[in-house]
Design a protein around this nucleic acid. Structure first.
Lengths: 418, 418
DNA sequence: AATCTTTGTCAAGAGTCTTGACGAAATTGC
DNA sequence: GCAATTTCGTCAAGACTCTTGACAAAGATT
């Protein structure tokens, strides 16, 4: 370990009086973020605290620049004028990074989950992990520079890596060939490099978090995010929290067998979904029709232009996926399913058969599930957005803890009711 | 609503100083239950509280009879003698009830999840819900009488009903014919009748809770319980908590399709697992061999006696189930799978092919899952045990809150180190 | 203009946790 | 055996956090 920088996120709360105060600070911040501009008395009712306490805590938060007063249009009722409060979104910044096999994405969000800046860069698939970190660090430096940001205001980093993640160390626990991250102690490496508390997470799960916070899954407690690409993976938000599984390997959907008598899959099983609905399968089915060099873009374009063969194959993908999701709905009873990944760009051609399959094959109660396309998957930056959201979601206390008294940030002028 | 009795469990904690105290009380109780006899200083370290605070809280708990001192064999180290503390298991009682289609089960557990008493009774499948409650109430009265229990010491009831449960009201939200509970406001009915805080839960989930607390899944954070009976259902413990799904319908496993081209199922799907591995399928396959009146017991007995045909069918059940569980392991990456239900009594004849299928068809990382038989399924009382465990698990604060100062229970003499 | 309602703040007080000191009870070393 | 050492449990003082009740301020209502 290069030096003693503590990469762990601070504990949430427990026991002492100070932790009670911290928990209440976080509670008020969360309420302010969710309920928008409210005045102190209303906040006190929402949080089940006395007005006095709310005043004290808010004064503290305001001294640190986390909350600003805006004599705004409160809900019109009688009584004294309300000094409405809003979170100052510019008070803190969350960093997200996402490393796919051929891209590096960096994203900065403010406290309100608004995008401050983002950038991506293609990298050579053979590039080593250290060099990938270099690329990301460069991108980050440039974003900070270009936007005149204060580095000290970044409160944490959420980082997406491909594959299952050993939770405490952030080690990617596969040793597939061509996987640059395997057995790297990613949590330490990133913490040293960025000098920030970091959370390492599988990138499909980060996409799920992104959709859950700023995308098509906003406010949904039990959310299933499905990424349809070369592989087919799921990100699970269960009971409002990211679900990782015992060793961080939860979410593999592509190797769900849909036919015990189906073709053999390299994974050892037979009739895996990915053999029918993965991008390689789609291309294999359509190259006789579109030509040997056809890409996913070609398929999507042709389908959009009305090519029946392409539409048919994409509909089959939807139908097959829908059957698997029907079983999944029986098991998990999600409230909403968000479909992302490259193939999701096919739109209704794929989604409609998928929905139909769920309605047809899932049991009565659970088939009421919403099925919607991802809202953020434009250019695959979703993972990085999710990384930043993860910091804000699970570590909001950080914002309260780390933003320093000595340097109150300027109140932002946007996002404040006038 | 017949009268104003509040059926809701009290809120866990939040905000005020009193709730901090309650949370710390609960924390200490939980630690005492889990870590066995410890002395105050050790408890303070475990809870991250000062010795003084622990002393204060413990004194309070002792005054209420929840904790007793036992000059026991502490871990031998130097220093002053340790006044070891243990929870007085007799201080509070949790009630569990389970209603299956033809049985009523009642169970009483003490604070340490030990069985105090239990009873079951067969009922007519056509019996209405009100009469079923009568039966349960009678059983409860008799248990209380026979064991000389103090009714006031019962801190809550966990009640299992068949089918998906609407969480807040406890309404069973199916309207299948022959389902006596459909659209009954079960939470209110039981609360009125028992005059206790109640939690209504699906009975397979309660069996999962039981296994998770006192059975084969002790201490496992991500646990999959599978009940193999006429239907095939799962109870999911994810991240250490019972997972219910959006409308409380999570856990249906039997209608996972294993073969898209398989036989049609009444559910609307094709090739459902239950068509291959449910009890009706097993009997259908073996009645030509064993005779038209053969029962599950006959099949199990014959298999145990070495009947090849029966062994083969049970092995097929295991293999089929294992294939589905392999996909499920890919998706959820559980740490352990507990197999319960009537068919699980077949033992290794069924389990070994099941394990083999998982090892063969699941991906590398997730197939390290433990697969073990249920430990509690003797006589199907597991659901009631789980109901009591649910009360103790999620509502331990109740024990601290409801046990009254004025009437400290006698210290139990069992379970205390001498 | 007077009254009403609700807000935000202040002072006093109650509840909870921590710190530092000290006696008590066992182990260790001579 | 006896002193030194270690750790425990408790006490008193103090610090921190929340609440209660009172009151002035700011707008709405009459």
């Amino acid at each position: 370990m290069p030096d003693g920088y503590d990469r762990r996120m601070p504990r949430t709360s427990s026991g002492s009086l100070q932790s009670l105060r911290r928990a209440n600070q976080e509670r008020l911040l969360t309420l302010l973020l969710r309920k928008g501009p409210v005045h102190r008395a209303e906040l006190a009712r929402l949080a089940d605290l006395s007005r006095t306490t709310v005043s004290t805590i808010v004064a503290d938060l305001m001294a640190r620049g986390l909350v600003v007063e805006s004599r705004g249009a409160g809900p019109g009722s009688d009584g004294r004028a309300k000094e409405t409060l809003v979170v100052n979104p510019a008070a803190a910044v969350a960093l997200g990074m996402d490393f796919t096999f051929d891209h590096v994405w960096v994203h900065l969000s403010d406290l309100g989950h608004n995008e401050i800046a983002g950038a991506g860069q293609a990298v050579d698939v053979d590039l080593g992990w250290a060099e990938r970190i270099d690329v990301a660090a460069d991108l980050l430096d440039r974003l900070i520079e270009a936007n005149g940001l204060d580095r000290a205001r970044i409160v944490g980093a959420g980082i997406g890596l491909p594959g299952p993640i050993e939770k405490s160390t952030g080690i990617v626990s596969t040793s597939l060939p061509g996987q640059p991250w395997s057995h790297v102690h990613a949590a330490d490496e990133f913490a040293q490099r960025l000098r920030l508390p970091v959370a390492i997470e599988n990138n499909t799960r980060l996409e799920a978090v992104a959709e859950s916070y700023s995308g098509a899954g906003r406010g949904v407690r039990d959310l299933l995010y499905v990424g349809l690409s070369s592989g087919i993976a799921a990100g699970l938000i269960l009971d409002g929290r990211v679900f990782r599984g015992a060793v961080g390997a939860a979410g593999e959907l592509g190797h769900t067998s849909v036919n015990v008598d189906g073709p053999a899959c390299p994974c050892g099983n037979r009739g895996c979904l990915v053999l029918h609905a993965g991008i390689p399968a789609v291309l294999a089915a359509l190259r006789p029709h579109l030509g040997a060099k056809a890409t996913v873009e070609d398929v999507l374009a042709a389908a959009a232009a009305g090519d029946r063969a392409c539409e048919g194959v994409l509909a089959d993908v939807g139908q097959m996926t829908g059957r698997v999701l029907a079983s999944l709905c029986n098991l998990l009873n999600p409230e909403r399913i968000v479909i992302g990944g490259e193939l999701a760009r096919a739109g209704e051609v794929l989604l409609e058969p998928l929905r139909t399959a769920i309605r047809r094959y899932a049991l009565t109660l659970v088939r009421e599930v919403d099925v919607v396309p991802a809202a953020l998957d434009l250019g695959a930056k979703a993972g990085a957005v999710g990384g930043a959201a993860l910091v804000l979601r699970e570590r909001l206390d950080l914002a309260a803890a780390l933003v320093d008294l000595t340097d109150p940030p300027p109140a932002s002028t946007e996002g404040v009711a006038s």
